[in-house]
Design a protein around this nucleic acid. Structure first.
Lengths: 242, 242
DNA sequence: CGAATTTTTGACTTCCATCAAGTGTAGTGG
DNA sequence: CCACTACACTTGATGGAAGTCAAAAATTCG
C-alpha cells in the first residue's frame, strides 16, 4: 500500500470526483469528513459557465450554493437607472453564496469561463447544522471577504483614478500569480468595462490610466489582456499603499 | 433529563448586570446559556468612552472584544498620507472585534459617548470553541456587515455627492429611529468631517449638499446635528434607491 | 462675553465624465 | 486571402461635479 493505513480507510470513502478537487485544499470541503463529502456529493453537480453568463441574478431566489473550481466570478450591484458597481471578485476555491438568506442582493456573473460545483441549499444547511467545523470555515471566509470589502471601500472613496487602476492590477497580480516577487505575468480576467465598474470609473479613464502606468514602465501591457509587472513593489506604491 | 436547559430554572443564574443588558436582545449574549454568561461575565468589564476617543488603533494588537451597549462607533482605515475612509458604523448591540486575527486592520473610534462591555480575547475564543450557537450568531452578524459594506461600495463608487449625503441620512434615520414611517427625528452621531470621511467627500461638499437637501425640503435641519425627515421615502428617492 | 471650533458660503481650479472619433483585434463568409 | 462587420480599446476635445483655498457665519465652551 502506498497510502498510510489510517488514511487509506477514509480515502476509500471519498468520492472519486472530490479526490483531486481544489475545494478540498483551502475550500470548504477540506473540513468535511469522507462521509459528509459523500453525502454532499450525492446532490452536487459540476457545471461550466461561459464568460459573461449570469450565475445568479440580483433579487432572484437562491436555491443553490457552489464552490468555484476554476475561473473568476464578479459580484455586482445595479441601480435602477443602470449604474453598476462590482462589489467583489471570487476566485477558486472560494465558496459562493449567502447562507441564511432566501434572496440574493447581488448578481453573480462569470468573468471568465468558470467551473463550479453546485449543491442545493438544503443539503448545505443540513451539513452546517451538524458540523461546527464547516460553519467555522464559512465564517472565516466571510471575515476575509469583509476585510477585502473594507479595503476596497478605501480605494473607492479616497484614491485617485491612477491609484485605483494600480490597486486593481495589484489585486489581480497577487491573486492570479501569488508567487515570484519579481516579474509576475498574468491575464486580466476582466474587460475594461468590468474594471471600470469595479473601480467606480469610466472605461475611458481606466484606459488612460493604463496608458500612463505603461508609459511610466510600472506595467508592460502585451496584448490588452496580458500584463507583466516587473516590480510589484513599484506597483504597490503607485496604488498608494504605504 | 434533569440537566436539560429550561428557561425558568436558569434565569436565576444569569449575572445581575446582564439581566437588563441590551446585548442579550439581539446581541451575541442572547445565545449564551446562564452558565456561559456567568463565565464570560467574570472576565468582562463595562467602560464608558468619550466621543472622539480611540477604542483600538489600526495595526495595534487586539486582546479584547466588546459589545456596544450605547452609542455609535466608527471603523476607519487611514492611508500613509492621512487620507481616511470610514468603512463601517456600529450601533448597539453590535459585537465589535475581528475574531481569529491578532492585529487590527482598522481603527475603532467612538463617534458619540459610548458604553461598551469588554472581555478578553481568550475568554471569547474559549466560548466560541464550546458553543456552535455563539459562532453561528457571530457568523450571522459578519454576513450582515458584509451586506452593508457592499451596499456602501455602490454608494462610494457610483453615487453623486447629493445621493451620497441622502444615503447617509437615510442610513442614520433607519438605524436611530427605526419606527414611524412618517416624520422621524434624530441627532446625527457624526460631525461633518466624519460624514465626509464616510462618504469619500470633503466637508465643504457635504455641507453644500446638506444645504441643497434642506432647500428642497427633503430634510429639516434644526440644530446642525438635529435633523427631521418629514418623508423617508422622498429621502430614499434622493439617495438613488429604486 | 470672547476664544475656539465647527459649519457654511464664495471664488476658482482640477480631475474625471462625457461626447466623439479613431485604431486595433477578432470573427464571418465570399 | 481579403472585405466586411462587430466589438473592445485608445485617444482627443470639452464640460461639469467636486476639490481646494479662503473667509464669513454659527455654534460651542471656557
Amino acid at each position: 500500500m502506498s497510502n498510510k493505513p489510517h488514511l487509506s480507510v477514509e480515502e476509500g470513502q471519498i468520492p472519486q470526483i472530490c479526490k483531486a478537487c481544489e475545494a478540498r485544499h483551502g475550500g470548504i470541503c477540506g473540513v468535511l469528513s469522507p462521509e459528509q463529502l459523500a453525502q454532499l456529493n450525492k446532490h452536487s453537480s459540476r457545471r461550466t459557465i461561459d464568460g459573461g453568463a449570469e450565475v445568479i441574478g440580483q433579487g432572484e431566489s437562491v436555491d443553490a450554493y457552489s464552490n468555484i473550481l476554476r475561473g473568476v466570478v464578479k459580484l455586482s450591484k445595479m441601480m435602477a437607472d443602470g449604474r453598476q458597481q462590482i462589489v467583489g471578485l471570487q476566485f477558486a476555491p472560494d465558496f459562493m453564496g449567502r447562507p441564511f438568506s432566501r434572496e440574493s442582493a447581488l448578481t453573480a456573473e462569470a468573468a471568465t469561463e468558470t467551473e463550479i460545483c453546485a449543491f442545493p441549499r438544503a443539503a448545505l444547511e443540513r451539513l452546517i447544522a451538524q458540523s461546527p467545523e464547516l460553519e467555522h470555515k464559512l465564517y472565516d471566509q466571510s471575515l476575509k471577504e469583509l476585510d477585502e470589502a473594507r479595503d476596497w471601500m478605501l480605494t473607492l472613496g479616497r484614491k485617485t483614478a491612477q491609484e485605483k487602476v494600480a490597486s486593481f492590477l495589484h489585486l489581480i497580480a497577487t491573486h492570479i500569480d501569488p508567487l515570484a516577487e519579481d516579474g509576475c505575468t498574468f491575464d486580466l480576467p476582466l474587460s475594461r468595462a468590468d474594471i471600470a465598474d469595479f473601480l467606480g470609473l469610466t472605461i475611458e479613464t481606466v484606459s488612460r490610466q493604463m496608458t500612463k502606468l505603461r508609459n511610466e514602465k510600472i506595467v508592460i501591457i502585451e496584448n490588452n489582456r496580458h500584463v507583466r509587472v516587473p516590480d510589484i513593489e513599484r506597483l504597490n506604491a503607485a496604488a498608494g499603499n504605504d
